[in-house]
Computed example of a mutant assay.
Amino acid sequence: MIKAILFDLDGTLLDTHDLILESMQHAVREVLQKDMAPERLMAKVGQPLSTQMWDFTDDQKLHDELLRVYRAYNEVKHDGMVQPFDGVEHTLRALVAQGYPLGVVTSKRHEAAMQGLRLFGLDAYLECMIGSDDWPEHKPAPGPVAHGAALLGLDPSACLYVGDSPFDIQAGNGAGCATAAALWGMFPKPVLLAEQPDYVCEGIRDVPCLL
């Protein structure tokens, strides 16, 4: 029986697709002096940014410079390009009113994640927030999701983890949570179904219906 819900952030609560893609394009052009297909730039969204950058270079200095340039650009553009998906606040409010504790488990760094949550007041509905710098493992490893459940005082089997990437579903399944694939995010349905989520949701308003 599900007693709490954990959410991914980018592509699940917040629509950050265009911001991430534009920041990736800017960093690759500035540092590597090249253009790459959007599909390649976005292939590992859902894993820590540091992990993603190793797909574009095997040089430590270039890797670190890609991170620096991406983060600087992303910070400037963030507030003007990010929006919550339709129904997010309504759904979080309804879940809290029904007595479900909520949390976020993301591969984004803690403070960067909180920037987006605070921007729209979504942090007020959360009892925990785990970023990539809050736990030694990263999705698709199950550790961060299991840690989120522990912070809510629950076994992972009592939690639902909702995410839009295959790495989310892998992490949730590995932790022993029930998992829900968010089809409104950044990855196509077949990619998510291949990871065998327990549920598939067309929109975030479907989440309370699962409970």
Results as ranks from 00 to 15, higher is better:
residue 41 L to N: 08
residue 83 Q to I: 05
residue 26 H to D: 01
residue 117 L to V: 03
residue 58 D to N: 03
residue 99 G to T: 11
residue 151 L to E: 12
residue 56 F to T: 02
residue 45 V to Q: 02
residue 159 C to P: 13
residue 123 D to N: 01
residue 143 G to E: 08
residue 76 V to N: 08
residue 129 M to R: 05
residue 34 K to Q: 12
residue 43 A to E: 12
residue 95 L to E: 02
residue 62 L to I: 04
residue 98 Q to S: 08
residue 84 P to Q: 13
residue 120 F to N: 05
residue 34 K to G: 02
residue 53 M to I: 03
residue 133 D to C: 06
residue 138 H to G: 00
residue 96 V to H: 05
residue 151 L to R: 15
residue 88 V to L: 12
residue 140 P to W: 09
residue 160 L to D: 09
residue 121 G to R: 09
residue 35 D to I: 03
residue 160 L to M: 03
residue 84 P to M: 13
residue 76 V to Y: 01
residue 130 I to L: 13
residue 105 V to T: 04
residue 99 G to N: 02
residue 144 P to M: 09
residue 108 K to Y: 02
residue 69 V to M: 10
residue 111 E to R: 09
residue 133 D to T: 04
residue 73 Y to L: 07
residue 32 L to E: 09
residue 114 M to V: 01
residue 56 F to W: 08
residue 149 A to H: 11
residue 49 L to M: 12
residue 36 M to W: 04
residue 117 L to Q: 06
residue 146 A to P: 14
residue 28 V to Q: 02
residue 112 A to F: 13
residue 77 K to Y: 09
residue 46 G to E: 08
residue 54 W to G: 03
residue 157 S to L: 11
residue 75 E to S: 15
residue 131 G to W: 06
residue 35 D to S: 15
residue 119 L to R: 15
residue 67 L to N: 10
residue 130 I to Q: 10
residue 29 R to G: 12
residue 151 L to I: 00
residue 67 L to Y: 00
residue 85 F to D: 07
residue 107 S to A: 14
residue 43 A to N: 02
residue 130 I to N: 09
residue 118 R to G: 06
residue 80 G to Y: 03
residue 78 H to Q: 13
residue 60 Q to V: 13
residue 118 R to C: 06
residue 159 C to D: 04
residue 122 L to E: 08
residue 53 M to G: 04
residue 122 L to A: 03
residue 113 A to F: 01
residue 89 E to C: 06
residue 152 L to D: 09
residue 110 H to N: 03
residue 151 L to Y: 03
residue 71 R to Y: 03
residue 38 P to D: 04
residue 26 H to R: 11
residue 84 P to F: 15
residue 34 K to E: 15
residue 82 V to L: 13
residue 39 E to C: 04
residue 105 V to R: 07
residue 75 E to D: 09
residue 28 V to Y: 10
residue 146 A to C: 13
residue 148 G to N: 10
residue 86 D to A: 15
residue 119 L to F: 09
residue 44 K to L: 15
residue 41 L to W: 08
residue 120 F to V: 00
residue 81 M to R: 14
residue 155 D to E: 12
residue 121 G to N: 03
residue 138 H to N: 04
residue 59 D to K: 05
residue 26 H to F: 15
residue 126 L to Q: 11
residue 122 L to R: 02
residue 61 K to W: 06
